[in-house]
Simulated scan of single mutants.
Amino acid sequence: MPNIDKKDFFELLKKNKELQDIIQKEIEKNRQKDEILFAQNKMAALGEMLNNISHQWRQPLMELSSVFIPIEAKVNLGVNIELEEIKEAIQSLNQITKYMSSTIDDFRNFFATNKEIENFKLLEQINIAYKLMSASFKANNILLEIIVSKNPTIIGYKNEYTQVLINILNNAKDALIQKKVPNPKIIIRIKENEDEIILDIEDNAGGIEVFPIEDVFKPFFTYGKKNGTGIGLFMSKLIIENSMNGKLTVTNTNLGANFKIITYKTIIK
C-alpha cells in the first residue's frame, strides 16, 4: 500500500468535501427545478380548469336567463304572474344554482393540496376527470367511450392521478380539434392482472408525428400545440413513475395515440 503523506491526505479530504458540496448544490438545483415545474404545471392546469368552468357554466347561465326573461317581460307589460309560475321559477333557479355550486366543489376538491397515499377506485377518478372536462368535450362533439369490466382499486395519490388523466385527455382533445377529425373519439380501457392495473387512453387523431415518440415526455416539448406549455406530459410521467412507482408510455396505433398508465396493486419501493 503506497504511503500518503499528511499534506496529500488533507488535500484529498479537501477535494472530497468540495465534490460533496458540488453534488449537494446540484441536488438542490434539481429539487428547485422540479418545484418550479410542478408550480408551472399547476398554473397551466388552473388555466385549463378555468376554461372548463366557463364551458360548464355557459349552459346554466343561459338557463337562468330563460327563467328570468318571461317573468321580467310580464312585469314590464303589467301582466299578472301566477303564483304557480313563480314557484316553478324558484324551483328551476334552485336546481341551476345547486348545479353551479356543485361544479365549484368539484374544481375545489380537484385542487386540494392534501397529498396522502390512499386507496381509490379507478373508475371514480375517470368520472371526475370527465366531469371536469365534459362541457369542453360536448362543445367539440368529442365522444368519450369507457370500456371496463372491473373497477380496480389503486394505491397512490388520488388528485395527482386525476391530474394525469386530465393532462392526457386534454392533449387528445386538442389533437382532435386541431386536426378537425370527423367523429372525434377517445377510448379509455381498463385491464387488470394479478399485480398490475393498466389504463389505456386512445384517440382517433391519427397519431403523434414525433420521432422518437418518447420525446413528448421531455420538459417544454410541444408538438404542434398552440399556446402549449410543454410540461403537462412531462409532469404526468413524473407523477406516475416517481410518485406512484408506475409506468407511463405512449405508442401510435391504427387510430391515433395511445397512452398507457400502469400502476401496481401494492406500493413498490
Score class of each variant (00 low, 15 high):
Met1Tyr: 02
Ile4Leu: 13
Asp5Lys: 05
Lys6Pro: 00
Leu12His: 09
Leu13Arg: 07
Lys15Trp: 04
Leu19Ala: 13
Leu19Ser: 14
Glu26Ala: 09
Ile27Ala: 07
Glu28Ala: 13
Asn30Leu: 14
Asp34Val: 10
Glu35Val: 10
Leu37Glu: 13
Gln40Asn: 08
Asn41Ser: 12
Lys42Val: 10
Met43Val: 13
Ala44Gln: 14
Glu48Ala: 09
Met49Phe: 08
Ile53Trp: 03
Trp57Pro: 00
Trp57Met: 12
Pro60Ile: 03
Met62Lys: 09
Leu64Thr: 04
Phe68Asn: 01
Ile69Tyr: 10
Pro70Ile: 11
Ile71Tyr: 00
Lys74Asp: 15
Lys74Cys: 03
Val75Gln: 09
Val79Phe: 12
Asn80Gly: 09
Glu82Tyr: 09
Glu84Trp: 02
Glu84Gln: 13
Glu85Ile: 03
Ile86Gly: 04
Glu88Trp: 00
Leu93Ile: 15
Ile96Arg: 11
Ile96Cys: 06
Lys98Glu: 15
Ser101Asp: 15
Ser102Lys: 05
Asp105Asn: 14
Phe107Met: 11
Arg108Asp: 11
Phe111Gly: 06
Phe111Glu: 09
Ala112Gln: 09
Lys115Leu: 13
Glu116Phe: 04
Glu118Trp: 03
Asn119His: 12
Glu124Trp: 03
Ile126Gly: 14
Asn127Gln: 13
Met133Asp: 06
Ala135Ser: 15
Phe137His: 08
Asn140Arg: 15
Leu143Pro: 01
Leu144Gln: 03
Lys150Asn: 10
Asn151Cys: 08
Ile155Gly: 00
Gly156Pro: 11
Tyr157Ser: 04
Tyr157Trp: 05
Tyr157Val: 05
Lys158Gln: 12
Asn159Arg: 12
Asn159Ile: 08
Glu160Arg: 04
Glu160Lys: 08
Tyr161Pro: 01
Tyr161Ala: 01
Thr162Met: 13
Asn167Pro: 05
Leu169Glu: 03
Ala175Arg: 10
Ala175Phe: 03
Ile177Val: 15
Lys179Tyr: 09
Val181Pro: 03
Asn183Met: 06
Arg189Met: 08
Arg189Ala: 09
Arg189Ile: 05
Lys191Asn: 15
Glu192Met: 04
Glu192Ser: 14
Glu192Ala: 06
Glu194Met: 05
Leu199Cys: 12
Asp200Glu: 14
Glu202Ser: 08
Asn204Pro: 07
Gly206Pro: 04
Gly207Asn: 09
Ile208Ser: 07
Glu209Pro: 00
Val210His: 01
Phe211Thr: 14
Pro212Thr: 11
Val216Tyr: 02
Phe217Lys: 06
Lys218Val: 00
Phe220Gly: 03
Thr222Tyr: 06
Tyr223Pro: 00
Gly228Ile: 08
Gly228Asp: 14
Gly228Leu: 11
Thr229Phe: 09
Gly232Lys: 07
Met235Cys: 02
Met235Tyr: 13
Met235Thr: 10
Ile239Lys: 04
Ile239Cys: 08
Glu241Pro: 00
Glu241Tyr: 01
Asn242Leu: 06
Ser243Val: 01
Ser243Met: 12
Met244Gly: 05
Asn245Asp: 07
Thr251Leu: 10
Asn252Gln: 05
Asn254His: 06
Phe259Tyr: 15
Phe259Lys: 02
Ile261Val: 15
Tyr264Ala: 00
Thr266Ser: 11
Thr266Glu: 07
Ile267Ala: 07
Ile267Glu: 10
